[in-house]
Design a protein around this nucleic acid. Structure first.
Length: 645
DNA sequence: AAGTCTCAAG
């Protein structure tokens, strides 16, 4: 068969849009006896190796089975595809390709080396990279600026900034990417000053240079410094916006994240999925369902692809805004779900009082061949804790290592201590802490202290509380817990003593607050807050509510009163806990029949819990309160937590 | 014929 007969097929191959089409067309070509004519290899290998919907194994097969020795371009394409793919065997496979080409006397060129270094950087093999570097130098490929830049990048990834700097210094012929790679090497490895010094010396800067600095400030410096750079930089690319918005979202400043996003919209800039992921994270933190809904409809309107990260963010947002049904709807309709998306759904279910489904989903995930990671385990252990399922908790705790070889981390231990402590097994919890394979941190002891308070164990509480205060003198929560434990076990003097120490050390109490979103605006309330513009009305309404529910058995509890309030104010303040004010505001401002959604930064107290239950019944409203750990969905006088929390 | 640097979740 004359070779030119393959030409029409080759152009057909170039037009293929999917791997299936490509394989079919290629198969037709093969059945006509045109066994891998060289021109057909290029489109097939390029597509299979580089396209995100390609099939790199198919490309490998074609390359290794070719009857004629493939051109260097094809080898390079495969190595490039492998470097990009980030599979666990990527690097060993590209090394195989590398040896194969040498074996067939195809001499590697500067492109080969660029892709190999990229592979080493992504695949985590330092030694191989160093050998290749020697080889590249010996064969004069290190003169190519691309090769050199990928070497700098490779050394930087492994924290070998000095080696990177040597390559950088040895060469006259540097371009802006060399500078960026070198600066980024410093910044990523925490050598901020060196990085900034080099940045100052740069002959010319581009967006990437500025964004590297911006990213380092967000991560290692202060957000406010980053903000200043953001204001001053000559041009903001989408990456700059991503960095700032995610910086705010991840550092407990979700309101500022949303404000910056609004600024972006006013400038008519199109958000990408990275921006939306951060915006969704901010919505999750604020419980801002209206905003979150807007983001979801925006994604649908723009037909944006929902990848596993966006899926996880959406599921997390809906779950943390209390709309677990919507969360699961998004989850099930998404095609791309990775372990994180599953984990978000699992912890979302658990948080919303649907632990049985959480366990089912965990098993389903394993059934689909996705292995749980350490965070998935934190989620199931939390689910056990919410239900008080001690035995199940131990089962999962043991399977952590037995089934998945994951060594328990502090988070897992903390979940177990919470599970035991909440269930009233305080002794067992303490024994469990003693059996830990690592040194327990203050979070673990703090969890036990919290349990001591819930179950009124003053002896253990005193011991643990004093130890905690000793080791971390500035944590307000520990003083408060200990003082309350004393107060509740009628040791008023000891409680007073703790209060005095706290005053003397000038330890500021982090105030408890509640958020409620009405018509896209997030309102914030503190306990006894009188700053809201509708204060008069809010307090009036709460008085009415209070009177009404008292007729149905509500008795303002005084046990849970915080200590830094003067005695005569006690009843007043517990009557005006932030969630009660938010509830009154919600009753004033939302439509009858709609759900009132409140987000708290600390745990809900007994008093508010019983008040909420009664209001849900007497006012016939569904109320959702998210506290620091979980959701309480109140309906018709009952709570989804079944009064266990 | 092709490449090197900045970017997101639990």
């Amino acid at each position: 068969m004359p070779p030119h007969r393959s030409i029409p097929f080759t152009s057909l191959l170039f037009k293929c849009k999917t791997i299936q089409q490509l394989k079919q067309t290629h198969a037709q070509l093969l059945t006509r006896g045109l066994n891998h004519p060289p021109p057909s290899l290029r489109p097939t290998i390029s597509f299979s190796a580089l396209n995100s919907s390609g099939d790199i194994n198919y490309a490998l097969l074609l390359l290794f089975q070719s009857s004629t020795p493939p051109q260097i371009f094809l080898y390079n394409t495969l190595i490039r595809g492998l470097a990009r793919a980030c599979r666990p065997d990527s690097l060993s496979t590209s090394l195989l390709v590398f040896y194969r080409m040498i074996e067939l006397n195809v001499v590697p060129n500067n492109f080969t080396f660029t892709f190999m270094f990229q592979g080493c950087a992504n695949g985590g093999d330092f030694d191989l990279g160093r050998q290749l570097h020697g080889m590249a130098v010996k064969n004069s490929f290190a003169f190519d600026v691309f090769v050199r830049n990928s070497v700098i990048q490779y050394y930087s990834v492994f924290g070998k900034v000095r080696d990177a700097r040597r390559v950088f210094d040895e060469n006259e012929d540097l371009d802006i990417v060399s500078w960026n790679s070198m600066i980024n090497g410093y910044l990523k490895n925490g050598e901020i000053l060196e990085g900034l010094e080099l940045f100052d010396k740069m002959p010319k800067r581009n967006d990437v240079s500025w964004n590297s600095v911006l990213g380092a400030l967000v991560k290692f410096g202060s957000l406010d410094d980053a903000c200043r750079v953001f204001e001053e930089m000559p041009h903001r690319s989408i990456v700059s916006w991503v960095l700032m918005i995610s910086g705010y979202a991840q550092n407990g400043r979700p309101k500022e994240a949303l404000a910056l996003f609004r600024e972006m919209q006013l400038l008519d800039l199109e958000p990408n999925s990275a921006v939306l992921v951060s915006v969704l994270s901010a919505c999750s933190q604020l419980g801002a369902l209206d905003h979150g809904n807007w983001v979801y409809s925006y994604i649908q309107k723009k037909c944006m692809k929902i990848d596993s990260i966006l899926c996880a963010a959406l599921v997390d947002m809906y779950a943390k805004c209390g709309s677990i049904d919507l969360a699961m709807q998004v989850f099930h309709s998404s095609r791309q779900k990775d372990v994180s998306a599953y984990t978000c759904a699992i912890s979302g279910l658990a948080m919303n009082g649907r632990s049985i489904e959480a366990f089912q989903l965990f098993e389903q995930m394993k059934g689909e061949g996705i292995s749980p990671d350490s965070i998935s385990y934190t989620a199931v252990l939390c689910a056990c804790s919410h239900m008080g399922w001690v035995e199940k908790g131990f089962h999962y705790f043991h399977s952590l290592f037995d089934e998945h070889g994951i060594r328990p981390e502090l988070d897992h231990y903390a979940c177990m201590v919470d599970l035991l402590g909440r269930a009233g097994l305080l002794k067992e919890a303490e024994t469990f802490i003693d059996s830990m394979a690592m040194k327990p941190d203050n979070v673990i002891w703090g969890t036990l202290l919290g349990a001591c308070r819930v179950h009124g164990n003053a002896e253990m509480g005193q011991r643990v509380g004093n130890m905690l205060i000793e080791s971390d003198q500035n944590h307000d929560g520990r003083y408060i817990l200990l003082s309350n434990i004393y107060a509740e076990s009628r040791k008023g003097e000891d409680a007073e003593e703790v209060r005095n120490i706290m005053r003397k050390k000038r330890i500021k109490r982090v105030p408890g607050y509640s958020l409620i979103e009405v018509d896209g605006v997030v309102h914030e309330f503190l306990a006894g807050d009188r700053s809201h513009e509708k204060t008069e009305e809010i307090y009036l309404v709460w008085e009415e509510i209070s009177k009404k529910i008292k007729n149905y058995g509500y008795n303002a509890e005084t046990r849970a009163i915080t200590f830094d309030i003067e005695d005569e104010e006690k009843e007043n303040v517990i009557g005006y806990h932030s969630e009660k004010l938010a509830l009154a505001f919600g009753l004033i401002c939302t439509k009858p029949g709609s759900v009132i959604r409140i987000v708290k930064n600390i745990r809900i107290c007994n008093d508010c819990h019983s008040a909420m239950k009664l209001v849900s019944k007497l006012f016939n409203r569904k109320i959702s309160v998210r506290d620091r750990k979980r959701y309480h969905h109140f309906e018709e006088g009952r709570c989804s937590c079944l009064d266990y929390w």
